[in-house]
């Protein structure tokens, strides 16, 4: 991104003047878009209602109204809560989201950091949010929160494995853990000698994509895996005692993570910022790349919300069974198959 401006600022100027605001934007803008487009509007149409209509044209300012509402609310601490842990939990969850954004490539040069072990790093920091949720569940001194937090911990740990194993197939095929390298290997790949559209890994790793999306759904605690917040059982699980700005932070964390995980899925399976027909080294990708990535991200995020509002939720034991008895064996088989084919071909 810096190269198109023909500038080469010092690292601290890059970091504080450019990367921090853009990073904030990269977290909040998709989260806001997802909330408005999908949580407010698309879902309303699915449920044959209009959704917000009064605030701004088609209710587009509703989000600002909601944020304003949450900011004004009193930040309540339960009497018996562990104050420090209770206060810190939403930040831990949000931190996980921000750390995930860091490794996302949005163009040949438009990256925050270009880690060699990018996807490995992403998988590692994504599990930080478990700690935040467990903190919230424990510190609230509420039984619903406690049950929700424990459910979340069990669930996130169970689905971390299929998530990582699904990514392994992609890594084997790309031959690198660098996110940029994964994009380029899809852009420069060929399908049986034909390089017209590159080689998006969705074609070869569709099993991996399926497992990845199921696991992401569970990681995000969206229905049918929303038992940590199951509102008909646990009120809202670990969120029960939160109000005001801390609830808002959880809320942002939830939907920003949905955006980031969709973006990661777009990078891993749909070629990230690349579109066929333009040379991947072309500088134009530094400008249109973020938009392309955002477009792919929104398409994948739609899947998440489509499932969320269609399916009932599993019971806790059924969810564990699905992870350990079905998804993990399936992803291991996928890895074996990918490995064999990689060697043979």
């Amino acid at each position: 991104m810096t190269s198109i401006l023909a500038l080469d600022p010092a690292w601290w100027q890059q970091t504080f003047l450019i990367k921090v605001p853009i990073g904030l934007l990269a977290v909040l803008l998709p989260a806001g878009t997802i909330v408005y487009l999908y949580l407010f509007k698309a879902v309303s149409f699915m449920q044959s209602r209009l959704g917000p209509m009064e605030a701004g044209p088609y209710g587009s300012m509703q989000l600002l109204a909601e944020v304003g509402k949450w900011l004004q609310k009193e930040d309540i601490f339960p009497t018996k809560a562990d104050k420090f842990v209770f206060a810190a939990a939403p930040f831990v969850v949000l931190m996980s989201t921000f750390l995930l954004v860091v490794i996302l490539p949005a163009g040949p040069d438009a990256t925050f950091v270009n880690l060699d072990v990018g996807i490995y790093f992403a998988m590692a920091v994504s599990s930080v949010s478990v700690i935040g949720i467990l903190m919230a569940g424990w510190a609230s001194a509420n039984k619903y929160s406690l049950l929700g937090g424990i459910r979340a911990a069990g669930q996130l740990i169970a689905y971390e494995l299929p998530l990582i194993l699904a990514v392994v197939g992609v890594v084997i095929q790309a031959g690198t853990m660098n996110m940029q390298g994964i994009v380029l290997s899809q852009a420069e790949g060929e399908i049986f000698g034909w390089g017209g559209i590159g080689n998006p890994f969705i074609l070869t790793q569709f099993i991996g994509f399926f497992i990845f999306m199921v696991a992401v759904q569970a990681e995000l605690t969206q229905a049918p895996f929303d038992m940590p917040v199951a509102e008909s059982e646990l009120v809202t699980g670990y969120l029960t005692e939160y109000s005001g700005i801390r609830f808002l932070l959880f809320f942002i964390g939830e939907f920003a993570s949905a955006g980031v995980f969709s973006a990661i899925a777009a990078v891993l399976f749909f070629g990230g910022w690349y579109v066929p027909g333009i040379d991947p080294t072309n500088d134009i990708f530094n400008v249109i790349g973020p938009l392309i990535l955002a477009g792919k991200m929104m398409a994948i995020a739609f899947l998440i919300f489509w499932f969320r509002f269609t399916f009932p939720r599993f019971r806790e034991d059924q969810l564990q069974r699905l992870a350990w008895k079905f998804l993990i064996p399936l992803s291991l088989a996928n890895i074996a198959l990918t490995g064999v084919l990689k060697v043979v071909l």
């Binding site: 699915m46 449920q47 044959s48 209602r49 229905a223 049918p224 929303d226 038992m227 199951a230 008909s232 509002f309 269609t310 399916f311 009932p312 939720r313």
Partner: peptide, 16 residues
């Protein structure tokens, strides 16, 4: 019944 097992959409159809 659907909303109690976690599916939010059917109840809106029911109300409609």
């Amino acid at each position: 019944m659907a909303v109690q097992v976690g599916a939010t959409t059917p109840v809106f159809y029911a109300f409609r």
